[in-house]
Simulated scan of single mutants.
Amino acid sequence: MISLSRPRLFQVAVPARASCAARVRRTVAAHLTLWQLSHLLDDAVLATDELFANAVRHTGVGPGDSIAIVLEHDEHELRVTLSDPSPLLPRPRTSTAAAESGRGLNIVAALADDWGTAPPDPGIPGKKVWFSLVTGETA
């Protein structure tokens, strides 16, 4: 059987500022709703928010830097990729119960079906961090 559905793609660059987090959450939610993936909305928005917060907090980006966000959806999977200018790879941490931070990647790992890192596109500094969620759709 040949699938006639086309992959969907959305890309945006957002300033690497914590004040842009709400915009990122709204953008992801709007596209998932448009793509009729509302059943993935909570997990995808929270995981994206965690990756965005990590990129802003831990990458040492400058005031003019941005974080690229790519949403890709095909008939089987939603993949969300964030690219930032830092070459430092994220590392899951073990946090104490009283710690106020340090759980972001553990949250992503718990929500996502898979996650990881990738090198940046040629000629662009930094890294990519991504996660995927199975859509539950069949071909």
Rank of each mutant, 00 (worst) to 15 (best):
M1W: 05
S3T: 12
S5T: 12
L9A: 13
F10Q: 12
F10V: 07
A13R: 09
C20L: 01
C20M: 11
A21S: 08
A22Y: 09
R23Y: 11
R26W: 11
V28W: 04
A29Q: 13
A30N: 13
H31E: 15
L32E: 04
T33F: 10
L34N: 06
L41N: 13
F52L: 07
N54T: 05
H58P: 01
T59H: 13
G60I: 03
G62N: 09
G62C: 09
S66M: 04
S66A: 13
A68S: 14
I69M: 15
E75P: 00
R79C: 15
R79M: 14
V80A: 10
V80H: 05
S86L: 09
S86W: 10
L88K: 11
P90W: 04
P92D: 05
R93L: 11
S95W: 07
S95I: 02
A97H: 06
A98V: 03
A98Y: 01
A98I: 00
A99F: 01
E100F: 10
S101M: 00
G102H: 03
I107G: 05
I107N: 03
A109C: 08
A110T: 08
A112Y: 02
D113C: 07
D114C: 01
D114G: 09
T117E: 05
A118T: 12
A118P: 09
P120L: 00
P120H: 01
D121W: 06
G123Q: 02
I124C: 12
G126E: 03
L133S: 10
T138H: 12
A139G: 12
